[in-house]
Amino acid sequence: MTNLVSANGIQNGGSKQAALRFLANYGFLPIILVVLCIAFGLMEPRFLTFDNALNIIEQSSYLIVLGLAQMFVLLVRGFDLSLGVVVSAIGVATAMLIVAIAPGGEGSVALSLLVGFCAAIAMGVLAGVINGTLVAYLDINPFVVTLGTQGVAFGIATTISGGFPVMDLPPALTGLLGQNGSLFGPVPPPVAICLAAMLISSLVLNRTVFGRSLYIIGSSPKAAEVGGLPWRRFTMLSYVACSILVAIGAILMMARTGTGEPSTGAGLVLLSIAAAVAGGVSLRGGEGRVSHVVLGGLLVSVLSIGMNLTRIDGFLQQVVLGVVIVAAVFLDRLRQRIRI
């Protein structure tokens, strides 16, 4: 009998430790996701259909890419307020370049897309170098820097396009990279590219000196400096990595709409930060994994699509997303206490 009681005690203790370990690593988000799915399913049966599940996966793929972008700078205690407007600026400039090379889909469409995509990545690198240099080498607060570059990017996007969408993009763009594109066979291109971005980001963060250094810099900048890490260079490169992912997001969103929209990035800053922070990427730096961003992206997509299906007012949806960010910060602190 004594042995049985001891065995039960050990089993219960092990289960409790496993539960605490799970909460410490992933927080309450998986539980919240399940509860939300059940709640939306009860309010609107269409939410639990297979087609809607595919829709959630496709919609979250865009957000996960941008959430990964925010994660790279959040790891070093930064953030990027210019993300949404940079998406718009890159989308508009890339669309104009593609149309200039192959107007109306005539001429060398393949060349126009190749040049356009390369130019988009180059613009992303430039934006990252500017933001990263100002933050890392001139010690300017990330809030001030990215707020300033947000204004610059907005001015560029509206000036070069005259404030109007860039139309007449080659149909091949949407045919290849749109939600129903054929580039990756039966897998929607946004989902395939998102998976590739997740894999590469995970490898960079976990298997390279640069990636591991970001965690050290975010956890203790002084320790990184004393340890001889080139923390300024790595901080700058984190903004470059962020902006490269932003450029990929801009290409995907341009392919999704078939136009270069100056207003495409409206609201994306809030959504990208929500996806990263709600998933468990710490605002205090030094903590975050790709799986956290995936969970956060799914949460925001489930909330958005669920609220749309249940016909909740769009302005109220913004309130809900704001509450999600605040709640995520609170739960992050609670998760830290559980870990301790």
Rank of each mutant, 00 (worst) to 15 (best):
L252H: 08
G124W: 03
F184P: 14
Y137S: 04
I10A: 15
I90K: 07
R233E: 03
I64Y: 05
L81C: 15
V226G: 04
V240I: 13
R21Y: 15
G163Q: 04
I57G: 08
S88H: 06
G148E: 09
S6P: 02
A328N: 06
L68P: 05
F47H: 05
I90F: 11
V86Y: 00
A328V: 12
V302Q: 02
V34N: 10
G258P: 05
V166L: 04
R311D: 14
F47C: 08
A18I: 14
L177W: 04
L205R: 09
E261A: 05
R284P: 00
A53F: 14
V187D: 03
S263I: 00
L138T: 09
T174F: 00
I160C: 01
I160F: 01
T146V: 07
V85Q: 15
L203D: 02
L36K: 08
V319H: 04
R21G: 12
G78P: 05
S213T: 01
L176M: 13
T49K: 02
T235V: 09
I140D: 07
L177G: 08
A122D: 00
V86P: 01
L252Q: 10
V191G: 12
F164D: 13
F40H: 12
S213P: 04
S82H: 12
T94V: 06
N206H: 15
A153W: 00
A275W: 00
V5M: 11
G132C: 02
V135A: 02
L126V: 15
F72S: 04
L66D: 11
V34G: 03
V135H: 00
I325Q: 03
A7S: 14
C242M: 09
N131E: 05
S291M: 02
L63P: 01
A275T: 00
D313K: 02
L113Q: 07
A136V: 04
V191I: 14
V35P: 01
L283R: 09
M307D: 03
T49E: 03
A136G: 05
F72A: 05
E106S: 15
A69H: 09
G84L: 04
G175H: 11
V204Q: 06
T49N: 06
C242T: 14
C242S: 15
I32C: 06
G148A: 15
I32E: 13
A100V: 08
S60D: 12
